[in-house]
Design a protein around this nucleic acid. Sequence first.
DNA 1: ATCGATACTGATTATCCAGTCAGTATCGAT
DNA 2: ATCGATACTGACTGGATAATCAGTATCGAT
Lengths: 245, 245
Amino acid sequence: MKKNVAERRTEILAATVAVIAERGFGHTRIADVAARLGTSTGLLHYHFESKDLLLAAAFEHAAQRDLIRLSQAIGADGDPLERLVAVLDLYLPAVEGSSWPIWIDAWGEALHNPALRSTSQRLDAAWKQGLADVIEQAGGHGSLHCADPAGAARRLGALVDGLGVDLTLNGGDDDEVMIQRQARARNWLLTAAEVELHLAPGRLTQVPGSARRDQMEQRPTVHPNDIGRGSNGDALHIGNASGEE
Amino acid sequence: MKKNVAERRTEILAATVAVIAERGFGHTRIADVAARLGTSTGLLHYHFESKDLLLAAAFEHAAQRDLIRLSQAIGADGDPLERLVAVLDLYLPAVEGSSWPIWIDAWGEALHNPALRSTSQRLDAAWKQGLADVIEQAGGHGSLHCADPAGAARRLGALVDGLGVDLTLNGGDDDEVMIQRQARARNWLLTAAEVELHLAPGRLTQVPGSARRDQMEQRPTVHPNDIGRGSNGDALHIGNASGEE
DNA sequence: ATCGATACTGATTATCCAGTCAGTATCGAT
DNA sequence: ATCGATACTGACTGGATAATCAGTATCGAT
């Protein structure tokens, strides 16, 4: 079926992102994308000059998607600390369907591919900047005091990266376990943020983080009743806490 | 020149690791490795059944090297806190010549290659376990108090991973700047460790960490006592060598 | 010195896949 | 309805490269 260029282009990019996610940058073939779309390989070459450019564009596309979500979270109304938690939640890998596999794969690729590298760096900088922004907002609002939002963002961002890598790479296939690991990582992160930002213990871990699931996923998945508990025994709030108690 | 199998094998693995480091897993060719060694491509197929197995073995080889360094650092004498700092220093990327590019590349590959994944997971687990060990040692020695060494290791390990990724990926080519970034990251890490382990501020950051450079750089190598070891399928499967067909 | 076993070569083959291109289908405009 | 422009097809080609294999060199042992 004939479509206009813009529409087809984004359709191709989405398909390419999907293929990259399941095969990796290095093992993605033009034919795979074509097969997923049910089109000819020629079509892809019609819209994209080369495979490299297609991959780069797809990566850029995926990055753009995430950055839009980020700026939405930053621009949201409400309590600054809730916004901070929302951004951190966006950053962390969701239990499923997160962008993390692609980012990790892109890191490896970026080491040897300048085009991907610049996108990867921009993405990284944007996340850390976003974090810094939301920290600064909270500072201006008087919710916390942080002398060096940019530095704090770098440190917290690094922690999220490390936790994200761990969750993404060392995960099993047991959903139950993954949910617990995710919840524990989140708890660690929020606790670290409290320390970093001189907040009272529990100030972030007990912020209702319920907006999360809605932003990350498309459907209101299972409700994980009583998902996991931190070392202190607090019930953790991930998932669509249907009723924020 | 004709060599015995074990020697040639490790020589090949070292060369492969070097090629992977500069080209990445996805773009490493048999011919690249052969060229680096100044041999034929046939030789590589003589010693390794397939390219995939060669890459997996090379990765395993590199992991082994780092883990030997790790266990040396853990087993060293001296002040437990110095040992802790030494392990963290080993973990962080050096200004140049670190293993980080390969690990990052391997992460991406591990997402889609079970053989690499298990090695990657073992490596990660070993590092975190090593950290936990050295924390526990220090705890037993009374240098610090930590109720949950394993958890602390996971958290600090994640932070190192994040910092390592940042240093490795977002580095420029300016050595001066890199040294500063590295030093700052190290400082952040040690400070985080102090907080995590309930140490007085400055207790780690002011530990003499000068031993570092000597450990990371290419000194005349430790005796390769791991050479003939076949922890996995090291026995060569060389069909055409015997000519009995 | 001879001989078999082992290590290695390099030319060749087989395969895979990005990119091309001549031709076809579908659109919107007149 | 016609026509030109645009989107698309699918068979094909060229190049790259993993893997093969018949043959050669080198070793150690007798």
